[in-house]
């Protein structure tokens, strides 16, 4: 039976009554591994497969990794539109490890997001304050 047609007519169970005691009642799930190294990879030239990722992470990661001077080539592709998989190819110069390059890319991307959040919050608060003072 396809999962979409499964009978979901179940009775509701209330969470334990004590308020605040159960802040996170849903069971924490173990994180599944979503990265895989494709065959034929070496230390300085590898293709990674990201499951359930698309252009959102692919293109942003490609940009930030291409910003690394140790990188000879970086590109991403989505080999088939009906498979939720994204391939990322990295080749480096001078025996630099592709794993280090990928890790640095992910770090740089988080740093970038942090800066965007900070600057956005400051600009918004300034704008709101200015608007409040003029009205």
């Amino acid at each position: 039976m396809p999962s979409a047609t499964r009978d979901t007519d179940a009775t509701m169970v209330d969470a334990p009554a004590e308020e605040g005691a159960v802040e996170s009642p849903a069971p924490e799930e173990a994180e599944e591994q979503r990265i895989r190294v494709l065959s034929g990879s070496t230390e300085e030239a590898a293709s990674f497969e990201f499951e359930n990722e698309d252009h959102t992470l692919g293109n942003a990661l490609r940009y930030i990794i291409m910003k690394n001077p140790d990188v000879e080539f970086c590109g991403y592709s989505i080999p088939h539109p009906s498979e939720a998989k994204m391939h990322l190819r990295i080749q480096t110069y001078d025996k630099v490890s592709v794993y280090d390059v990928l890790e640095k890319g992910l770090n740089d991307l988080s740093d970038l997001c942090e800066v965007v959040m900070d600057k956005f919050t400051i600009a918004r608060d300034e704008f709101n304050a200015k608007k409040a003072s003029t009205t």
Binding site: E31, Q33, R34, I35, F50, E53, T56, L57, A60, L61, E103, L106, N107, L109, S110, C113, E114, M117
Partner: peptide
């Protein structure tokens, strides 16, 4: 996006 990057880092 940041969470995504960090999750991939853990992976």
């Amino acid at each position: 996006l940041k969470i995504k990057a960090q999750r991939m880092k853990r992976g």
